[in-house]
C-alpha cells in the first residue's frame, strides 16, 4: 500500500516525532508507515485521516 504521509507531514512542517506525538504512537511507527514497511490498522488509518482532515483514500492507495 502507498501513502502520502511524508508529503502531508512536510506540508505542515512536522517532524516524524511531531506526527508520532499527535497520533500517540512511536516515531519508529511513523517511519515504518511512511516508508511502506508497515500498513496501519483501520483504526490507526482513521486517526491519521482525522488528524489531516482528509478521507483515508486521500492518504492511502493501493500499489
Amino acid at each position: 500500500m502507498k501513502n502520502r504521509l511524508k508529503v502531508l507531514r512536510a506540508e505542515r512542517d512536522w517532524s516524524q516525532s511531531d506526527l508520532a506525538e499527535r497520533l500517540e504512537v512511536s516515531r519508529q511507527s511513523v517511519n515504518a508507515i511512511e516508508t511502506g514497511r508497515y500498513d496501519p490498522s483501520l483504526p490507526l488509518a482513521f486517526r491519521i485521516a482525522a488528524l489531516f482532515d482528509l478521507p483515508i483514500e486521500a492518504i492511502f492507495s493501493k500499489d
Binding site: E24, V25, S26, Q28, S29, A32, Y38, P40, S41, L44
Partner: peptide, 8 residues
C-alpha cells in the same frame, strides 16, 4: 502495548 507497530 497500544503502539500497534511495536506490538507487531
Amino acid at each position: 502495548q497500544h503502539d500497534e507497530y511495536v506490538r507487531m
